[in-house]
Each structure stands twice: as C-alpha cells, then as structure tokens.
Computed example of a mutant assay.
Amino acid sequence: MLIKDSLTHEFLVRDNHPILPDDGLDHTQCHIDRLHASARARTKAPYQPKVKPQKLTR
C-alpha cells in the first residue's frame, strides 16, 4: 500500500498485510453467496450447500 506524505510529497510503502499466493480460482460467487446467507436465514429458507470456487478460464 502506498501512502503519500502531504508535507514532503514522498510515498511511504507499507507492507503490513500478508501476501497470499494466487490459487487460480474465482471466489466471486462464494462472496456473493455469503452476503445472501443472512437473508436466507431470516426467511427460513431450506439449507443450501456452500458454493465452491470456480476455476478461472483464461
């Protein structure tokens, strides 16, 4: 992450987060499903298994 200093206009580099290797999978549907899980719980919808990440097609 780059942070620009307002006085000196220099960039500070912060590496305080771990960089995980790319697993080559698309996790978008997993994140969207997690967002909708609470709505399913409130409406008492039947159980749905977790969505699995898809392989990226390049």
Rank of each mutant, 00 (worst) to 15 (best):
M1F: 15
L2W: 02
L2I: 11
L2M: 07
I3V: 14
I3G: 08
K4Y: 07
S6Y: 06
L7V: 12
L7F: 15
L7K: 09
L7Y: 13
T8E: 05
H9L: 04
H9C: 01
H9T: 06
E10C: 09
E10A: 07
F11E: 13
L12S: 09
R14P: 00
R14W: 14
D15G: 06
D15P: 06
N16I: 03
H17Y: 11
H17D: 15
H17N: 13
P18W: 07
P18Q: 09
I19D: 09
I19G: 03
P21H: 11
D22W: 14
D23Y: 05
D23P: 04
D23L: 05
G24Y: 00
L25K: 14
L25W: 07
L25Q: 12
D26C: 05
D26F: 00
H27A: 00
T28E: 14
Q29D: 15
C30W: 07
C30R: 07
C30S: 01
I32S: 14
I32A: 14
I32W: 08
D33K: 03
R34N: 11
L35P: 01
H36V: 14
S38K: 13
S38Q: 15
R40G: 03
A41L: 00
R42H: 09
T43P: 04
T43C: 05
T43E: 06
A45V: 14
A45D: 15
P46Q: 05
P46E: 08
Y47S: 10
Q48F: 02
Q48G: 02
P49H: 05
K50V: 08
K50G: 10
Q54L: 12
Q54S: 13
Q54T: 15
Q54M: 06
Q54G: 03
L56W: 06
R58V: 14
